[in-house]
Design a binder for these strands. Structure first.
Length: 686
DNA sequence: GCGGATCAC
DNA sequence: TATGGTGATCCGC
């Protein structure tokens, strides 16, 4: 460590503690950032969390050093070459500029907090945050004046604002109000893209043309309609693409809007002074690196430093950075995509008690399995996520021959992954399943998308019927309208499917900012396309020649025929009384259902092992597993009932039905769970 | 295919 | 006392 740095650290140690909490954000204008920084530091100092943050910080600094070295080592010839690469790429990107569409981004103001204030008006005007002592989801504007904000631990927030009122999260409320806003959005773009419960992108090109009014007028109208329907305010941005619209919606927040005209000059002027951190996809780390290594602060400087970016980043990263500099990003209406993974994770007080950890794992497996069954998913890659007591995050994955979705199937493999990590002290366990049954490498299942309705209603959608373990025993009506995880697809009363897009303009191109990243832009280029520049190839290979292999981007994904992977064939008993279950007859992987009857007797062979005999139980379970695998090898296994396609999650249908009920008359639906807060809303005065 | 990281909400 | 959960993507291996 440099002496100069420690010197400043000694005087103002908090200055070196990098948090996201002082980043410019709506409602944070008058905040004493120095004070916030100091309080956050004081509250964090010495904690395990803090120490881990310091480790990460040090690692990032190292990466930045490495990148700086590489930048300095670029010769004049290199730079001249990469300048040409950048210029060429900028021209190509410029050619894709599209100014014919008008996009609107709506963002509800302090959404969760605003909803809570609706249902409890006494909160009005008081500093309030939604969340717990551990973590806040959001804070209202009164609280933001104190530096309190989303993703901040509650105990720190309380230090910043001793009078802060804490309100627990209630996703049912937020989902309900989100639904109302979406009804409004639909009037302007039936295919709008929901980005989350409180954000959406609307292509208002058509509605502007049809009504002969401007995007700004549409925004005004939409916002007042949202307010009329919900009593909530929102902000809007109007721009030629989604990336810019998102930036614009933040400018006059709360309860305001900003219009960027569809004019190239206007866009370039707008972008020129824009801090890069305003751009979606550029987070704390990327911002730091671009600033520290390349001196890039504004989007305009992305273009000025184009040669460096092309020299030191992958092509996709450099392309993203350059397009940011040009103010490009997201003008099409992408097809709805299906989720690629599903996961469940929980934080708990750190423990190294293997029995306890195993119990946590079993709980997670159960939760995940339930979620998967709700959506009719099964997958063959299982990833175990661990966070140690010292906040280090690890993951361990296996990819199986067969698709799993049952709690026991998941737990079986998860236990093996966890076992390999023992002994260990953990504060979080998570499980994720990916590689879904009909996963076709990210290609949308139904290219005609938009109206998945037809797909659903016409009966083309594979239906979950009895005989499939993945079918949940419950009736549609048992499903919540939406669980608290913010299910990513909703179906409206018109049957239009709205996918909640994670990346509305571009994907994250940033994770390659990594000290180990030796791939340069040039490597990713097909040299023949550069033509005359290719003579300079040698200069470009200053380091890492091993990386220069120009491998075909297309990898032949040899897939095992889906027909031969066995799948549930027994009706899921789902009943708690598992002791009646046969020790399985067929070779299905998920038949391997070992559990401890009355918590001590093996369900498969009757052997007795008390629950404290963790290791012994695991070995016992392994024994049965080996036995089973042997059977399968010998070919006894598998008649298969395989879902040919990802089934339409029942929840979609469920939300459709419920939505209709809501629509007719909110007051009459007393049977709906949503009513609990509805009643509260009108009845609760203080 | 795996593991580490970043990012958004 | 106390720093979340879900999903996506990218990259190097």
């Amino acid at each position: 460590m440099e002496d100069s740095e420690s010197a400043t650290d000694n005087q103002r140690p908090w200055q070196s503690y990098n948090t996201v909490y002082t980043n410019a954000k709506a409602g944070m204008e008058g905040v004493d950032k120095e004070k916030v920084q100091r309080v956050v530091y004081e509250m964090s100092k010495g904690s395990k969390y803090f120490e881990n943050e310091e480790r990460k910080e040090a690692f990032i600094r190292q990466k930045m050093e490495h990148m700086r070295d590489r930048a300095e080592k670029l010769s004049a010839a290199d730079l001249s070459y990469y300048q040409k690469v950048a210029d060429k790429r900028i021209l190509e990107l410029e050619a894709t500029r599209e100014l014919s569409r008008i996009w609107l981004h709506v963002d509800m103001d302090a959404f969760y907090a605003a909803v809570e204030t609706l249902s409890n008006p006494s909160l009005k005007g008081k500093p309030m945050a939604v969340g717990s002592m551990s973590m806040l989801s959001t804070a209202n504007y009164e609280a933001r004046k104190f530096g309190v904000r989303a993703a901040m631990p509650g105990f720190i927030a309380r230090k910043l604002c001793p009078d802060l009122i804490f309100v627990p999260t209630d996703f049912k409320k937020y989902t309900y109000y989100s639904g109302i806003t979406r009804e409004v959005f639909r009037n302007y773009d039936p295919n709008f893209m929901a980005a989350s419960l409180d954000e959406a992108y609307l292509d208002i090109t058509k509605v502007c043309r049809e009504r002969g009014i401007t995007g700004g007028e549409i925004a005004e109208e939409l916002r007042s309609r949202v307010h009329e329907e919900t009593g909530l305010t929102c902000s809007a941005g109007v721009a030629p693409n989604r990336l810019l619209a998102k930036v614009c919606s933040d400018i006059n927040k709360p309860n305001g809007q900003f219009v960027l005209p569809n004019d190239r000059m206007a866009v370039m002027t707008f972008i020129s002074s824009l801090p890069i951190r305003k751009i979606g996809g550029i987070g704390k780390v990327t911002e730091n690196i671009l600033k520290a290594v390349f001196g890039i602060n504004t989007c305009e400087e992305m273009l000025q430093k184009g040669s460096f970016l092309c020299a030191l980043f992958s092509r996709s990263s450099a392309d993203f950075f350059l397009s940011v500099g040009l103010g490009l990003g997201g003008t099409d209406t992408p097809e709805a995509r299906f989720r690629k993974s599903i996961s469940s994770e929980r934080t708990f007080s750190a423990t190294e008690d293997a029995a306890l950890l195993y119990q946590k794992l079993a709980d997670i497996a159960e939760m995940l399995s339930v979620d998967m069954q709700k959506e009719g998913l099964s997958g063959r890659t299982l990833t175990l996520k661990l966070k140690t007591a010292s906040f280090e995050v690890r993951s361990r994955a296996v990819t199986l021959q067969k698709y799993i979705c049952s709690s026991d199937g998941i737990l079986k493999h998860a236990s093996n992954l966890l076992k390999a990590e023992l002994p260990i002290s953990l504060r979080l366990i998570g499980l994720r399943v990916s590689h879904f049954n009909e996963d076709k490498g990210g290609v949308p299942v139904d290219p005609t998308q938009k109206t998945l309705t037809k797909f659903l209603i016409s009966g083309d959608a594979p239906k979950r019927t009895g005989g499939d373990q993945c079918s949940f025993g419950s009736d549609l009506s048992d499903l919540n309208f939406m669980n608290e995880k913010e299910t990513s697809v909703s179906l409206d009363s018109n049957g239009t499917c709205h996918y909640e897009f994670g990346a509305p303009f571009e994907s994250n191109h940033l994770s390659d900012i990594d000290g180990n990243n030796h791939i340069s832009y040039e490597n990713a280029y097909e040299m023949d396309k550069i033509g005359e520049l290719s003579s300079h190839k040698t200069a470009a290979t200053t380091d890492d020649t091993k990386e220069r292999t120009t491998e075909s981007p297309k990898k032949e994904l040899s897939r095992v025929s889906e027909e031969d992977s066995s799948f549930q064939r027994e009706p899921e008993d789902g009943s708690p009384d598992r002791s009646n279950k046969e020790p399985s007859a067929s070779g299905n992987e998920d038949d391997y259902m070992l559990f401890w009857v009355d918590d001590y007797k093996c369900s498969l062979c009757g052997a007795e092992l008390p629950s404290s005999f963790i290791e012994e139980r695991q070995e016992h379970s392994d024994f049965h597993l080996a036995e089973r695998l042997q059977k399968e090898e010998s070919g006894t296994g598998s008649s298969a009932l395989i879902p040919r396609q990802r089934v339409m999650p029942k929840e979609y249908v469920g939300s459709q039905n419920r939505r209709k009920k809501h629509k007719s008359s909110p007051a009459e639906g007393k049977h709906l769970p949503i009513d609990s807060f509805f009643a509260k809303k009108s009845g609760q005065k203080s």
